[in-house]
Amino acid sequence: MKLKDIIKLGEKYCYCPSCGNDKIGNDEGKLIVEEHTYYRECSCGFNILIDDRKDEI
């Protein structure tokens, strides 16, 4: 995944769209960035997986 796409997604999902939480770690949420995927999870149950091979960023 390109750095510009990671930054763009980070700006969009920095705050959870469901509850507004901006924390990761310590059971607050997760942020996992791999070669083609961006995964953001929140303790409220929100999660999103974006795959740059399939999804438009």
Rank of each mutant, 00 (worst) to 15 (best):
K4N: 08
C42E: 02
T37L: 09
C16S: 08
D5H: 10
M1E: 05
K8H: 14
I24Q: 12
K54W: 12
K8G: 01
L9V: 11
C44Y: 06
D52K: 08
R53T: 15
C44A: 06
G25K: 00
V33Y: 01
K54I: 14
N47V: 00
R40I: 01
Y13W: 14
Y38P: 13
R40D: 02
D52W: 08
G29D: 13
D55V: 02
G10C: 12
P17D: 06
S18W: 14
I50Y: 06
D5M: 02
I48T: 04
C14V: 01
K4Q: 13
D5G: 03
D27R: 03
G20N: 07
C14F: 14
V33N: 01
Y13H: 05
Y13I: 15
H36E: 06
I50K: 12
N21V: 15
G29K: 09
E28R: 01
N47A: 10
G10V: 05
G10E: 05
N21C: 15
Y15D: 10
S18K: 15
I48Q: 00
L49S: 08
D22T: 11
C16F: 10
G10H: 02
Y38K: 10
G45A: 03
L9F: 12
R53E: 14
I50T: 06
E35G: 01
L49V: 04
E34T: 15
L9I: 04
L9S: 08
P17S: 04
N26K: 11
L31D: 03
E35P: 02
M1F: 04
I6G: 05
G10L: 04
Y15T: 09
G45Q: 12
D51R: 12
Y39I: 11
I50L: 14
E28S: 14
L9R: 07
I6A: 13
Y38E: 06
K4Y: 09
C16P: 11
C14L: 07
E34I: 05
H36F: 09
K8T: 11
I32P: 00
E56K: 15
N26C: 11
I24D: 09
Y15E: 08
K12D: 05
N21W: 15
N47I: 01
S43V: 07
C19I: 07
S18M: 00
I6P: 14
E34L: 12
Y15Q: 08
E11P: 00
N26Y: 10
C19R: 01
D27T: 09
D5P: 08
L3P: 12
K8C: 02
K23L: 14
S43M: 01
K54S: 10
R40A: 06
D27G: 05
D51A: 07
N47Q: 14
R40T: 00
T37S: 14
L3S: 09
C16I: 04
